[in-house]
Simulated scan of single mutants.
Amino acid sequence: MHEVLRRWKAAFDGHQPDSMAGLFTPDALFQGFGPTVLTGPDAVRGYYEAVPAGRRADVTVLHTYTVGEQVAGGFAAVTFGDAHGWEARVHLSLVLRRDDGDWRIRQYHVSRVDTEHSDLSR
């Protein structure tokens, strides 16, 4: 998880859509900020091509798990930002699959963190 997110952050910060797409499995499911669930590396590439250059991501891994030797997953806190003060805090959920000895993202989902509604028991 840590290595995949290190590569993801480097590709995101460097605005490298091809590198981003290469991190995903051919059958990947991707839910970013938009309302549509995307499928596969080509759709992921298109998503990241539309992200303005200069955006950065700060990533903190919160939890990881494994299921056997071929599947892993976890959660990370991510803060996206840019030099103009734009910022978005999210929780990122990943499911990873080992393909040909390399870990790739099989499922990607972001959920905005809204502190105003963080406690549903109120």
Rank of each mutant, 00 (worst) to 15 (best):
E3G: 09
E3K: 12
E3Q: 15
V4H: 02
R6I: 15
R7L: 11
W8A: 09
K9H: 06
K9A: 10
K9P: 07
A10N: 07
A10T: 08
A10L: 07
A11N: 08
G14Q: 00
G14N: 08
H15Y: 02
H15T: 02
Q16N: 11
Q16C: 12
P17E: 05
P17C: 06
P17S: 03
P17L: 06
A21D: 02
A21Y: 00
A21F: 01
A21L: 06
G22E: 05
G22R: 02
G22D: 04
P26R: 08
P26H: 05
D27E: 09
D27L: 06
A28N: 09
L29W: 10
F30C: 04
Q31W: 11
Q31P: 00
G32H: 01
G32R: 02
G32S: 09
G34F: 09
T36S: 10
V37S: 05
V37Y: 05
V37M: 10
L38P: 02
L38W: 06
L38A: 05
L38T: 03
T39E: 03
T39S: 14
G40P: 09
G40W: 03
P41C: 04
P41V: 11
P41L: 02
V44G: 01
G46W: 13
G46S: 14
Y47R: 06
Y47C: 06
Y48F: 13
A50S: 13
A50R: 14
V51C: 08
V51R: 11
V51L: 12
P52M: 10
P52E: 10
P52K: 07
G54E: 12
R55C: 12
R55N: 12
R56M: 07
R56Y: 08
A57S: 13
A57N: 09
A57K: 04
D58G: 03
T60R: 15
T60G: 11
T60I: 04
T60S: 14
V61G: 02
V61Y: 01
H63G: 07
T64R: 13
T64A: 12
T64V: 12
Y65F: 14
T66F: 12
V67P: 11
G68V: 14
E69A: 10
V71L: 13
G73L: 05
G73P: 03
V78G: 14
T79C: 14
F80K: 06
G81A: 15
A83K: 07
H84R: 15
G85V: 01
G85T: 04
W86P: 01
E87Y: 08
E87V: 13
R89L: 08
R89G: 11
V90A: 13
H91S: 14
H91Q: 07
S93I: 00
S93K: 01
S93Q: 12
L94I: 08
L94C: 05
V95E: 07
L96M: 04
R98E: 15
D99R: 09
D99K: 02
D99I: 13
D99P: 01
D99T: 12
D100G: 08
D102K: 00
I105H: 02
R106N: 04
Q107H: 09
Q107G: 00
Y108L: 08
Y108T: 06
H109F: 05
H109Y: 00
V110M: 11
V110Y: 02
S111D: 03
S111K: 03
D114M: 05
D114R: 04
D114L: 07
T115V: 14
T115G: 09
T115R: 15
E116T: 13
H117Q: 10
H117E: 11
L120S: 15
L120P: 15
R122D: 08
